[in-house]
Simulated scan of single mutants.
Amino acid sequence: MRKKFKILLLSFIFFLNFNSNNLHCQVIVKNDCDTEIFSKVEFDKCLTDEVWKDDIIVNTNYIIKFKTSLLPKYRRLRKELTLPIELQSSLQQLKKTYDSVLVKKTSIFLIDMDKNQQYIQPKAYLSSLISLQTFNFYPDVYAILLNDIHLQLKPITSKEDITIFNILVDDVFKAIPNELFKRLVEITTSFSNENAKLMKEGFSSLFQGKQSEKDLEKYRIINFLLWLEDV
């Protein structure tokens, strides 16, 4: 399922780049909102879908910069880290859980979203599809595992599961040696600041909720360690 989403996203990005480089004047076309085909509700949804056009460009440009500018710079730093066996073991357990939950949630999100959009809001769909892909490129344990929004948002996560996810995250955090922790604070603070600059163009991450500064620091470190764990 994840492979299917990545293929769709990469095909879309290629389409944008191809047209930008070769046609210059090519733009994202307007929806065909036909009153003779659509009900009034469908027609209104079709019209309002146009507001998402700019988001498609913003989200695509963010991912391009994120993957070609930011991530390569920090990939070397991540690979240079020496992790104790206990930390590696805890990361592997968390990684399995994160990947499994992400695949399940992403697939259900997209199916339900398309249905709620009555299958006639392609721009809103593409905007969300692109945004969701960021969680494949770089993990976010709070957004996918710990945010209380998942207690209501399909597929629903139980309170018991969120408790288990918190334990897995805490196991990773407790296994970080002091010297490594200090280095990770430096790296992830720098990473966060550079990412914030990229996001000034308008990109907004999904499922961020309200996180304290202490939790933000903790999750940034966990996310950075989790990244590339299966490489």
Rank of each mutant, 00 (worst) to 15 (best):
T35L: 05
T35I: 14
E36N: 10
E36W: 01
I37R: 14
S39A: 04
V41S: 08
V41Q: 12
V41N: 11
E42P: 03
E42I: 04
F43V: 05
F43N: 04
K45G: 03
T48I: 13
D49V: 04
D49S: 10
D49N: 09
E50I: 13
E50N: 12
V51M: 10
V51G: 01
V51E: 15
W52V: 02
K53G: 02
I56P: 07
I57M: 03
V58M: 10
N59Y: 03
T60D: 03
N61M: 15
N61G: 03
Y62S: 05
Y62M: 00
K67G: 02
L70H: 06
L71R: 09
P72R: 08
K73E: 12
K73I: 06
R75K: 14
R75W: 00
R75L: 08
L77R: 09
L77Q: 14
R78C: 09
R78K: 14
R78V: 00
K79I: 05
K79P: 05
L83I: 13
P84E: 01
I85D: 07
S89E: 14
S89F: 09
S89A: 14
S90E: 10
L91V: 00
Q92D: 09
Q93E: 15
Q93T: 10
Q93H: 08
L94H: 02
L94V: 01
K95N: 14
K96I: 06
T97N: 05
T97S: 06
Y98R: 03
Y98S: 00
Y98D: 02
D99I: 07
D99G: 02
D99Q: 13
V103A: 13
V103E: 13
V103L: 05
K104G: 00
K105S: 07
T106N: 07
S107F: 07
S107L: 13
F109E: 09
L110M: 15
L110V: 02
I111H: 06
M113W: 02
D114V: 12
N116W: 05
Q118W: 08
Y119L: 11
Y119W: 15
P122G: 13
K123W: 04
K123P: 10
K123S: 09
A124I: 00
A124N: 05
Y125K: 08
L126A: 06
S127L: 03
S128F: 12
S128Y: 09
T134V: 14
T134H: 04
N136F: 15
F137H: 14
Y138S: 09
P139K: 04
D140H: 06
D140N: 15
D140F: 10
V141T: 11
Y142A: 07
I144G: 01
L146M: 05
N147D: 10
D148G: 00
H150D: 02
H150N: 01
H150P: 06
L151P: 06
Q152R: 12
Q152N: 15
Q152A: 07
L153T: 11
K154I: 10
K154G: 04
T157P: 01
S158K: 13
